[in-house]
Design a binder for these strands. Structure first.
Lengths: 236, 236
DNA sequence: TAGTGGTCTAGACCACGAG
DNA sequence: TCGTGGTCTAGACCACTAT
């Protein structure tokens, strides 16, 4: 068939096209790398890269000896990128503002220790701050930093630079977990955000680790109008 | 240095380690593929794959001629996988239930046409349904399907199989967009979910496309306790 | 223009795991 | 057991872009 260029992108596009056209329906076995290489006139390594990328984006599933199958169902999803608050606000053309509400050294009690994954009594830094967009509350941030993993935080005032931004710049991470949901504003949260108690809030709970060691736990609250966007163009 | 095995995973781990240890701080230029291949005793293709994967996970940025640099900031994120509601409920050990509330053929008005990305007057199928976990409302789904992109939906009753599950099985997509946020329950939504009007809801707005053509637009509402989880182990 | 990443090849060996 | 994917190599040419 295709005897023309046949780079891995061409092979990937051709295979994806045949999957989307149901020539190979969900569950079907597709040709081996060697067969595809023959068909498209390329080296096996080229077919391998095409199929590997289709597997990474969930269109096919691969197993040694069993071959490559079209995925039965491809879950909706995408690559999630939670933005730095300041850049997000500025990108929308609004003026960014920041206020530190609280900064306190703490020892982890049992509940916090369990939530963060540290030992009870571990030294933590507790922070609460407010991010503003054109003067209006945009995000209320409550955060704990594990000082064992990020000792430099102990001497950082966080009065001008938000913990969000400081951590992204200063402390790398290797694993993260995000939990998204809704919550009704407590009286305190409502007051900080300028809303009525019980107002609907969008809640992001973020935890990060560096090589298995817990770094930080954050609870980020947004008023109801806010939307976090996740786009997916894996099919390209 | 490392004269041992040195597969691409070893090179990737070694380079990542040097980045995390700040041997190469954010913004620093790291050695070329050829230099790394020499240092780790492997072929350039092996070093290339290691660096390519580190770039895909956001640890480094690569540009021809300019070389490979450690990323200034690596945004928190991960691979998002929005689950099929039924499987999610069953995986939590609860009994799944489903009720179709409404099914109606519609023509897109101006607002809907803009939201979905179709022409005004396009044939749509409108669906509303409720997903239950152990009998309690779990998700209220409002959806429009573009019948031009998924004509088979016109004859699918959706009485036993939810549109969520039907679409995942029957209609592939190549692009998607998810928007996450909070919303206060309307009277109608509150009634369907068994909550008080104004209750905090977690809201997922999903749109998918197949080769540029809009397929569906869904608004998924969850009670406040629900959490959507996104884990990230890219650093492994 | 020259240096760097991007890709391809033809061949090879290995590891996993289905039958 | 042995077919399939997983990986590696040594070399090559190309594309982009900083200088």
């Amino acid at each position: 068939m295709a005897v023309a260029p046949a780079g891995y992108k061409a092979v990937k596009a051709a295979v994806l096209d045949r999957i989307l056209r149901r020539e190979w329906p969900p569950g079907a076995l597709i040709p081996t790398e060697a067969a595809l290489a023959r068909e498209y006139g390329c080296a096996r390594a080229t077919a391998n890269r095409a199929l590997r990328e289709l597997a990474a984006t969930g269109f096919v599933e691969r197993r040694r000896k069993a071959g490559t199958r079209v995925a039965e169902r491809r879950l909706p999803g995408g690559r999630l990128m939670v933005p730095v608050v300041r850049l997000e606000v500025e990108a929308s053309g609004r003026a960014y503002g920041y206020r530190l509400l609280e900064r306190a050294a703490e020892r982890a009690d049992a509940a916090l220790a369990a939530a963060l994954g540290v030992a009870a009594g571990a030294a933590l830094l507790r922070l609460r701050c407010l991010h503003l967009a054109d003067g209006a509350p945009h995000q209320l941030e409550s955060r704990w930093i594990n000082l064992a993993a990020a000792p430099a935080a102990a001497t950082e005032p966080f009065t001008a630079l938000s913990p969000n931004e400081w951590l992204v710049r200063e402390v790398p991470y290797t694993e993260s977990e995000h939990r998204f949901g809704a919550a009704a504003a407590t009286a305190e949260e409502a007051a900080a955000l300028g809303l009525a108690p019980g107002a609907a809030l969008f809640c992001v709970e973020r935890r990060t680790w560096l090589g298995g060691d817990p770094v930080t736990l954050a609870r980020l609250l947004h008023p109801a109008g806010y939307r976090l966007v996740c786009r997916d163009d894996w099919g390209r």
